[in-house]
Amino acid sequence: MSTISIQSVSKCYQNGFEALKNVNTEIHSGSFTVVLGPSGAGKSTLLRLINGLETPTTGAVRIGGEAVEEHKLRHIRSRVAMVFQQFNLVDRLSVVTNVLTGRLAQRSWVGSVLYLFRGEDMAIAQRVLARVGLTDKAWSRADKLSGGQQQRVGIARALAQQPKVILADEPVASLDPVSSEEIMTLLREICDRDGITVVVNLHQVELAKRFADRVIGMNGGRVVFDGPPAELSQQTLRTIYQREGIEDDNSLDLALAYA
């Protein structure tokens, strides 16, 4: 099982910023969870803790009962893939090499540093590339692709890891609406068909309502809402997006009017 459990986690950065304040939650295996919240609410930090890109100041993160710890990172990361807002591909490498990067944790450095991969790894890469519809772009340089295509490569890299969990940190924030739709549909389909747990940070309330099984709302480093998207009322959205020290927030009203 790959239930993610976050146990009284706090994160204080070196500059003194408290990104997370005693967060407790469980994310069930095979679910599709969307995390909403204003910028600086701690959404990214939460996701990065699960992959071990950040370490909690206090508390612990467990995946399927296993604690995310420094000396087990390679093992944990091999099962917990990450998709980024800026795609974070290696620009100069081909699409297929970027996808094969997803196999690195399974192989020792001896062959892989020479870009030699086993036939089975290549087969996996081919399958996931076909899945995201980029077979014909396999040998293009990653930076020659459009934003939407690059994000699909990002997802293919994650899939190549054959993970239990995919964490997507604002995967559509730099994409146009059509590409955003494609990417969200792809992530939802991966969750449904492969039973992979998907956790997505989003800024678009509307996408959250349509794609999520469960929405976690964050504000100021705390979980302020947790429930199915149907329960996202105007009032709960106000709680999620409220800004400290601003009583009558016109911008908030206008932003939520069409959400």
């Binding site: 990450m82 974070n88 620009d91 690195l104």
Partner: peptide, 27 residues
């Protein structure tokens, strides 16, 4: 080298030599 690119490769569980060969030199 862009921090994001490093994190992209690191997030797959790559070790030191793999990080250097995939995130480092190509960039």
């Amino acid at each position: 080298v862009d921090k994001g690119v490093c994190e992209g490769v690191a997030s797959t569980g790559a070790d030191f030599p793999q990080m250097v060969m995939y995130a480092g030199w190509p960039s």
